[in-house]
């Protein structure tokens, strides 16, 4: 690695952190930004309400990546969604169930649910068995979720995490049980499968918009704004390097 690259990376991280802090502050002089409507999220919020009213269960699956792996960002987004969803449906007859395919992720899902119950002053209703490991290999993880889809009266499946094509098994089970499915993954193969098998797939970086749309905190909306700015930066850099390349200056 050349000596300039780490410094550039460090500066980019510092600028992003600064922007994140600035945009998280309450807007006094800045205009308040709205989020563009995404059908998947309005459908999700409607399905969440219906699930609580009908006394059916919500199942959120976080994937099978380890928390120390480079693909853990999608699982962290899943955990934020889990916290919000547990908070709004903790008093339901059938509270949400979180599954994962990796040990540390299972423990984090239990911890996240516990935190949501504690914030709702309903810690006595918390059950650690609502954060489950279903299998430690990708296929056993997918197979372990199938009984949940068929037997636990689940009406909403949220798939937010890192998967392989095996996630198609759960999607098929969800379709057979007429359950609502919203799916997002950082894996390209999983995205292709999810597009073909779920009703509301989120493509690409839409995954990272989930916490903002679930109204978890201003930091998540600010994070989306910074992401947009960075995207423009990447576009400019790509166009500029292409132009410079064409004229032989790069």
């Amino acid at each position: 690695m050349s000596t300039i690259l780490p410094i550039v990376a460090f500066v980019i991280i510092l600028v992003c952190a600064g922007l994140l802090f600035f945009l998280t502050l309450p807007p006094k002089r800045r205009p308040r930004w709205g989020l563009r409507p995404i059908t998947a999220f309005s459908e999700l919020i409607r399905s969440l309400g219906l699930s609580v009213e009908e006394g059916t269960r919500l199942h959120l699956t976080l994937g099978h990546t380890g928390i120390t792996q480079p693909t853990s960002a999608s699982a962290l987004i899943g955990l934020q969604a889990l916290e919000r969803i547990t908070a709004v449906s903790s008093i339901s007859d059938r509270p949400p169930l979180a599954t994962s395919g990796e040990g540390s992720l299972t423990l984090l899902s239990q911890s996240t649910q516990r935190a949501a119950y504690r914030l709702n002053n309903a810690l006595d209703l918390y059950d650690p068995q609502r954060g489950r490991l279903t299998g430690v290999t990708p296929l056993s993880y997918a197979a372990g979720m199938l009984p949940i889809a068929h037997d636990e009266n689940v009406s909403v499946h949220l798939m937010i995490g890192h998967y392989g094509p095996e996630i198609g098994l759960l999607c098929e089970a969800a379709v057979r049980n007429n359950a609502f499915t919203l799916a997002a993954s950082d894996s390209l193969s999983a995205q292709a499968v999810l597009f073909a098998t779920t009703k509301q797939p989120l493509i690409g970086e839409e995954l990272f918009a989930i916490p903002a749309y679930l109204q978890t905190s201003p930091a998540h909306v600010a994070s989306l704004r910074v992401q947009d700015l960075l995207r423009w930066g990447v576009i400019l850099a790509l166009v500029l390097s292409a132009v410079l390349g064409v004229f032989g200056w790069l």
Partner: peptide, 11 residues
């Protein structure tokens, strides 16, 4: 995905 992961890590 990389941009989103960067921001998630920063948070």
């Amino acid at each position: 995905i990389a941009l989103g992961s960067l921001l998630t890590g920063l948070r």
